[in-house]
Simulated assay, not measured.
Amino acid sequence: MTSSFETITTRLDGRVLYATFDAPPINLIGPELVRDLVTLLGDLAQPGSPRVVVFDSADPDFFIPHVDLTKVPAYTAQAAKAGGPGDASLGMLLRSVSQVPAVTIVKLRGRARGAGSEFALACDMRFASRENAVLGQIEVGMGAPPGAGALQHLSRLLGRGRALEAVLTSADFDADLAERYGWVNRALPDAELDDFVASTAQRIAGFPRDAVIAAKAAINDITLPEPAAVRADAAVFQHLVSGDNVKVRAAELFRRGLQTRSPAELDLGTTLGDLEAAD
């Protein structure tokens, strides 16, 4: 690994790369983080790249809370560099995350909502701190459906009823409930999370690489959504996110402290439920 990043710190431990999101103040998805992801994906496609990547966060409160709502066009333009102008969406970038030859593992502490949850869903496995992890798909509460993979992944992982519950309520899910629903592989006590993930990553990294890649590719063929479905979700999101409902609700959320380390952001699932009903 030779690239340097503005929003991701990396550490190589044998055949395992640890990639830590570090984009103050709260790890929002903006153009800088998307640019770094595009570069990292390019590195992981090279011969001799790490066999396993573990993603975590330097911020104990936030894994990735959601996109930066003030920079949607800017991060979309950066995402286009992963697949070209015809695939200018975060959803298609995250589909590329699912397809890298490395095995991708999320070690989840803090809040992963909206596109943060969608990033975690795009990775191969998710292990969450029982005490400190929170997941949520907040988009419907904002005024648009998810557009970067949640509709596809949650429907496959949770089943129809639970996927509808997760998406339509825009509520927060703690790690235990997320595990029971299938949103994460396992919820573990926080004190055990680091050792468990490290052991799992090293175990996989020690197996023959061709077998690991072939097995992952076969499971991807069965479970990943088709590109057309991802593009369709992205198009609906991009249309509605610029609409009046989102503008009005976002303005009220910003007034309450959205995208800061405020109670409104920390408890965003509750905050969305408290907003005035929209037509």
Rank of each mutant, 00 (worst) to 15 (best):
G182K: 05
L266T: 07
L240Q: 14
E265V: 04
A251G: 14
E179V: 01
E32V: 10
R160G: 08
M92D: 09
L37G: 00
R209V: 11
L69N: 13
T223Y: 11
P225C: 10
H153K: 08
D195F: 09
S199H: 11
G86E: 15
F63Q: 05
L94T: 01
S242N: 13
V16C: 02
S49R: 11
L93C: 10
L33R: 09
A45Y: 02
F254K: 07
Q202P: 03
A234Y: 03
D176A: 14
D194M: 06
H66F: 13
H66R: 05
E131P: 05
S242K: 12
P263D: 14
E265F: 04
T271L: 07
P65F: 07
L157K: 13
M1N: 09
D59C: 04
R261M: 12
P189G: 09
E118C: 08
T39D: 03
T223N: 11
V197Y: 07
V72L: 14
L275S: 09
V140F: 11
E252S: 06
N185G: 12
A163F: 03
A198E: 12
Y181D: 07
A201Q: 08
P189L: 05
R126T: 09
V212G: 09
R51W: 00
D221K: 12
D174R: 10
L188Y: 10
A205Q: 11
V53P: 01
L275K: 07
V236D: 01
A218E: 15
A214N: 11
S89Q: 08
P65V: 08
H66N: 15
R130F: 01
G159V: 12
F5G: 02
L37C: 13
S170P: 11
F55H: 02
V134T: 15
Y181C: 05
D172H: 04
A191L: 11
E139P: 02
V236F: 00
L240N: 02
I64D: 02
A217S: 14
E118H: 08
V241I: 15
T200E: 06
T9W: 04
D221P: 02
S57L: 10
L275T: 03
D43N: 12
S49P: 14
M142E: 09
A198Y: 00
A112S: 14
F207I: 06
D267Q: 09
F237P: 01
V212L: 15
Q46Y: 01
T223W: 10
A88R: 07
G149C: 07
E32D: 13
L41K: 05
A217V: 03
E139V: 07
P47N: 07
V67S: 13
A80G: 05
F119Y: 12
E252Y: 06
T260E: 15
T104M: 13
R160Q: 13
D210T: 06
D22N: 14
L121Q: 04
N27A: 08
E192T: 10
R111V: 08
F62D: 00
A163L: 08
R51S: 13
Q78V: 08
V34Y: 00
P47R: 08
G30Y: 03
V38H: 03
A205Y: 06
L37Q: 01
V67A: 15
R203K: 11
A211P: 00
A166V: 14
Q46L: 12
